[in-house]
């Protein structure tokens, strides 16, 4: 049939690109993670050996990998709730009937999302400067002594989290705002007639209606935060004392600095497996919650 041929012409280019440059590398990555692919194999594939799960076993014995994993977990566990709370707060404020210039505020709060990550990371590196940074200056006005944000191993990750929240919260804010706007007004009216207070309306109308969107926002944000890379690359280069080395930063150095490509593939798959499990648990929880 002529129509079927035409249909394939429409999908073939995109499918070909995705198959060759995404699916094939993913499968090849899994295979590579079972080999000792390194700089010698890069020069001559005759040096390639199959080593089974040795890369994975070795990773689990590498202290820096565990440190990177712990740092990334810190970033996710603190950063995601903070980020979503700010997004939710901002969405509620924008949704209020009392707000003037809603369009202006929405654009202003969203602006950091579209900026170039590397460029704003460079800006924030200076905002965090211990002597000349605006942040310490502002804290000084409040009587708080200066903090060596990016130079102190205890403060470097919190600083990166502050920056990431600033950069990202606008994205979820827009999605949550759209969710708030899609809740039918009658539900609130009915609740008011029943004498529900503002808090009760929020608790029994807004939250349950938003639950599916909040679940989705959680899943996407967690997956995104696990992929921390450019922030430490630009702001701290993994330091000080490797306190900001993330899993992807570790993978990048392992693969493209030391050319241990087999081991780097294993890192990528461990990260993927972990994100996948966290996502699955969240979906299960959401289903269980909506059933309860």
């Amino acid at each position: 049939m002529r129509n079927v041929g035409a249909a394939w012409c429409f999908v073939a280019p995109a499918l070909l690109v995705i198959a060759v440059f995404f699916f094939l590398p993913v499968v090849a990555g899994l295979a590579m993670s079972l080999t000792d692919f390194d700089i010698y194999a890069l020069a001559d594939s005759g040096n390639l050996r199959l080593v089974g799960l040795q890369n994975y076993a070795q990773l689990l014995q590498t202290p820096l990998f565990w440190q990177a994993f712990g740092n990334t977990l810190y970033f996710v566990v603190v950063g995601v709730p903070l980020s979503i709370t700010v997004s939710f707060g901002a969405a509620l404020l924008l949704h209020s009937r009392l707000v003037k210039f809603q369009a202006f505020f929405r654009t202003a709060l969203f602006a950091p999302v579209v900026t170039t990550l590397v460029a704003v990371a460079v800006i924030w590196r200076y905002l965090f400067h211990p002597h000349y940074g605006l942040l310490n200056y502002a804290l000084g006005l409040l009587g708080i002594p200066p903090i060596d944000w990016l130079g102190d191993p205890h403060w470097a990750m919190p600083a990166i989290i502050v920056f990431a929240v600033w950069k990202n919260f606008g994205y979820n804010m827009i999605i949550l705002l759209a969710g708030l706007q899609s809740i039918p007004g009658q539900l609130y009216e009915a609740a008011r007639i029943d004498g529900a207070s503002m808090w009760q309306q929020f608790r029994h109308v807004t939250l349950p209606m938003l639950a599916p969107i909040v679940t989705m926002v959680n899943i996407l944000t967690i997956a995104g935060y696990f992929q921390l890379f450019a922030e430490p690359y630009v702001m701290t280069q993994g330091g000080p004392l490797q306190s900001t080395v993330s899993v992807l930063y570790f993978m990048y150095e392992e693969g493209f600095k030391w050319w241990n490509l087999g081991s780097a593939s294993a890192v990528a798959f461990v990260l993927f497996l972990f994100i996948f499990c966290v996502t699955a648990v969240q979906l299960r929880l959401a289903r269980w919650q909506s059933a309860a």
Binding site: V20, L24, P25, V26, A223, Q227, M251, S265, A268, L271
Partner: peptide
């Protein structure tokens, strides 16, 4: 699947 999973083999390809 995060795109970074494909990066190492994609580079070789």
């Amino acid at each position: 699947i995060p795109s970074q999973v494909a990066m190492v083999p994609l580079f070789l390809l």
